[in-house]
């Protein structure tokens, strides 16, 4: 008895090779994932000189420095002294219309998500709960669709959009993503867990099939929908590949990742500080959204049996 109470009140720490290996591997993984974020945050706070000379540690010295662009315009040096953080972030918002890019990002990802839901929820309902000829075949096609990488069909889609004269428009950014087989699949798996009685009860109450979808199925599927929202919004907010292909001329249509290119390969060389500052601005909404929705997000994935 005394043995067990002693060991439970003050656990003995013993070296375990297996545990240590586990943690070393996990820490190494965490470092690999977190290091780019560390660099991004650090660069966003440092002056160009500190970035180039790799001095100043994580925060930089925060000493004001001379903005060369400002002094080349003929201003006295004393008027061109700037704080590194202020410089990086003002540059991020002034050198490129970052706000406009963020707005484009919101418009594009928002439209994509709304249309994806409008398509996926009724489709998933039909696949999960209605009996019709060929249902299994259609579901097979959905699964098949999951296997096709976007890059494989990017060219044909681009050609089609070009023939329709839709390149360089919001439509080109949105239309190819409106039907999400992943969304259909995820929602279908979730709807399978909703008891049939609930749908029958709604029918007895006098709801139409569309009312059932939007007033009964959708509210019960909020966790799954939230999980899908994160997948969809993250994928399209961060997408660089597709906007890069269809948006060729107008900077007005740039999405945030395209905006990052503005800071690359200038005559002055790479301007890392403002670039990392805008990267920070771009990823922040996603990280905040994820942290807020984290619990329900995991709930949604586990509920649909996709742990």
């Amino acid at each position: 008895m005394t043995d067990t109470t002693a060991s439970s009140s003050s656990p003995v720490f013993r070296f375990s090779a297996a545990e240590t290996t586990k943690h070393v591997v996990l820490i190494a993984g965490a470092v690999i994932v977190l290091l780019p974020f560390y660099v991004m945050i650090s660069f966003a706070m440092k002056s160009p000189a500190e970035i180039m000379q790799q001095t100043g540690g994580f925060f930089g010295s925060q000493a004001p420095f001379v903005d060369h662009y400002c002094s080349k315009l003929g201003n006295p040096e004393s008027a061109c002294m700037v704080n590194p953080i202020a410089y990086n972030f003002t540059q991020a918002f002034t050198k490129a219309p970052l706000l406009r890019y963020l707005l484009n990002g919101v418009i594009v990802t928002g439209s994509i998500f709304v249309i994806q839901v409008a398509v996926a929820v009724p489709a998933a309902y039909a696949l999960a709960k209605l009996r019709f000829w060929g249902r299994e075949a259609v579901f097979g096609l959905v699964l098949f669709g999951l296997l096709i990488p976007v890059h494989a069909i990017a060219l044909p889609i681009y050609v089609m959009l070009a023939k329709l004269g839709l390149t360089n428009s919001y439509a080109a950014l949105i239309i190819p993503w409106t039907i999400s087989v992943f969304g259909i699949f995820l929602m279908r798996q979730f709807f399978m867990t909703v008891p049939d009685d609930l749908i029958d009860a709604a029918r007895m109450d006098g709801m139409s099939e569309f009312s059932i979808i939007w007033k009964v199925m959708l509210p019960t599927a909020i966790p799954a929908l939230l999980a899908f929202a994160i997948f969809s919004v993250v994928a399209h907010w961060n997408d660089y590949f597709w906007p890069r292909i269809v948006i060729t001329g107008t900077r007005d249509l740039f999405t945030p990742p395209l905006g990052l290119r503005e800071f690359k390969g200038d005559i002055d060389g790479n301007n890392y500080g403002p670039m990392m500052a805008s990267a920070l601005v771009i990823v922040t909404p996603l990280i905040v959204a994820f942290l807020i929705a984290q619990r329900r997000f995991i709930e949604g994935i586990t509920l649909s049996g996709m742990k």
Partner: peptide
């Protein structure tokens, strides 16, 4: 005739209450 227009009411084994 559609279920709702028969004016019958049904009580289900799982109760089938709208959870939200």
């Amino acid at each position: 005739v559609a279920p709702a227009e028969r004016n019958l009411a049904m009580v289900f084994q799982s109760y089938a209450l709208y959870p939200h």
